[in-house]
Simulated scan of single mutants.
Amino acid sequence: MNRDTMAPPIRFKSRLLCIALAPLFLAACDASAPAPPPEEPPLAGADIGGPFELTGEDGKTYGWDDFDGKYRIVYFGYAYCPDVCPTDVQRMAQGLRLFETESPELARQIQPIFITIDPARDTQEVVGEFTDAFHPRLLGLTGTPEQVEKAAEVFRVYYQKGADQPGGGYLMDHSNFTFLFGPDGAPLATLPTDLGPEAVAEELRKWVK
């Protein structure tokens, strides 16, 4: 077979392929092409968060509106928790520290908040000692059983007193979401404390602007 007779069709097909792909490359290089729409926060529109009245570790009374203009990290737990709470809070705090190192100005716009679901034992002093062990800006909140119940309700948090332990005391059953809220108090996302500090920092990079 004469190889020369096959060459022109192959070259012709190559030219057609280049012509067909040219608009795609031009579009990719066109700075005026519209940017993709911004990603919507996973919790956008969710009915999570709202008014409450609780007492801080500093003895002051706090409501949800006191944090207007701040991003807010909110975690419900209890100081006597033997494992889940300290692990979650530690990873959250470590992730926040990573973000503080990279973006100190943005990080200052974040208020981390710990709300007890065990007000019978978690006094102002107890929640203060607990939060101070993780991050200097982590604010611990407590209150009456009724105040804590109302706060948990508006944040869609489950909790219940568990059975008494053989050595004394008791555990608390509870959900362990770490919520991130925007400056307007609207929910944005949950922070993946189960994946470690770097995953928490990555989620903060995504939504804190």
Score class of each variant (00 low, 15 high):
N2E: 06
T5C: 05
S14F: 09
R15V: 14
L16Q: 09
C18N: 00
L21I: 10
A22H: 01
L24N: 05
L24C: 01
F25M: 10
F25V: 01
A28C: 01
C29N: 00
A31N: 02
P34W: 08
P37C: 00
E40I: 08
L43D: 12
L43K: 06
A46H: 12
D47W: 12
D47P: 13
G49C: 13
F52I: 08
L54Y: 03
D58H: 01
G63W: 00
G63S: 07
D65F: 07
K70L: 08
K70G: 02
Y71W: 15
V74K: 13
V74N: 06
V74W: 14
G77A: 03
A79G: 10
A79N: 14
C81M: 10
P82D: 02
P82S: 11
P82T: 10
D88M: 04
D88A: 15
V89G: 06
Q90E: 15
Q90I: 06
Q94S: 02
Q94C: 08
Q94P: 08
L96W: 05
L96D: 04
R97Y: 10
L98A: 14
E100Q: 14
T101I: 07
T101D: 13
S103L: 07
E105Q: 07
L106Q: 10
Q111R: 12
I115P: 15
I115K: 14
I115V: 15
P119G: 06
A120N: 13
V127C: 13
T131H: 13
D132V: 03
F134P: 07
P136Q: 06
R137L: 10
L138I: 01
L141V: 09
P145T: 01
P145E: 00
E146P: 00
E146Y: 01
E149F: 05
K150S: 08
V154S: 03
R156E: 09
Y159V: 05
Q160E: 10
D164W: 04
P166T: 09
G169P: 12
L171I: 01
L171Q: 07
D173N: 02
N176R: 05
F177V: 06
T178R: 12
F179N: 11
F181I: 11
P183S: 10
A186Q: 13
L188H: 14
A189V: 13
T190P: 12
T190R: 11
T193D: 13
D194V: 14
L195W: 09
G196A: 12
P197N: 02
E198G: 00
A199T: 00
E203L: 09
L204F: 11
R205W: 04
W207S: 11
W207D: 12
V208A: 15
K209A: 15
